[in-house]
Amino acid sequence: MKIAQQLKDKNIAEYLIYMWQVEDMIRANGCDIDQMERNVLAAYPCSEEEKGPLKQWYSDLINMMREEGVSEKGHLRINHNVIINLTDLHSQLLSSSQFPFYSSAYFKALPYIVELRAKNNKKEEPELETCFEALYGVMLLRLQKKAVSEGTEKAVKTIASLLSMLANYYDKNKKGELKLE
């Protein structure tokens, strides 16, 4: 809960990846708060009084996942909203002549995005969601100690650079420091 809020305040891209991990962790525990308490909360290095709000946070997420029909796959509406907000900012940055470095990063990443969308057969999916799925997928492969090809490494590095820039612009925009046309 604290980690999610800190990431949301600091880096929206890292926040989204973290929240996708949380969704998967909840699924791995059968969307069951008792299992979450035994397998996850018991390992948290926090006091007993801190565990109460943390348990409530996980319980709320579990309920949201059930209500939104994403208990087995998909993402919570709150996470989709992050993609929507980032996509809106992404479009504004691309349509402005003030951000040539962002446009350049996007056009470097675009061939990889197109290739990933073709492979995944998700052409209606927002481009940024494809980007996040690529980063998340590689992160999962690394956690499983599976090999990542050189081509995939290059693609992910390019995509990560784009998302890093976008996250920085998002932060500046949130603080009122970004002047969009």
Rank of each mutant, 00 (worst) to 15 (best):
K8I: 03
S164C: 12
H80M: 03
L16W: 07
D24Q: 12
D34I: 15
E72I: 06
K145M: 12
A28D: 13
M165H: 06
A147G: 09
E14M: 12
A118C: 04
E150W: 13
Y18L: 02
H80S: 07
G176D: 04
D32V: 02
A167P: 00
N81H: 05
S47V: 03
A13C: 13
A160L: 13
E177I: 08
K157I: 04
I62V: 06
E37N: 05
E181S: 12
E50Q: 09
N85S: 11
K55D: 04
L180D: 03
K146G: 06
S96A: 12
Q6W: 13
Y15M: 00
P111R: 13
T152C: 05
K119W: 15
Y58F: 14
L94S: 09
H75F: 08
S103K: 08
N168G: 10
D9P: 06
E50I: 01
L143Q: 15
I17P: 00
K51T: 02
G69V: 04
E49G: 03
T87P: 01
I17F: 05
Y58L: 03
H90D: 04
A109E: 12
A42R: 12
L180R: 08
L86E: 06
I33C: 01
K172Q: 11
S91N: 11
V70Y: 02
L166N: 03
Y106S: 10
N29D: 07
D60F: 07
L166Q: 08
M165G: 10
P126G: 05
K145L: 14
M1E: 09
S104A: 13
K154C: 09
S161N: 14
E50M: 05
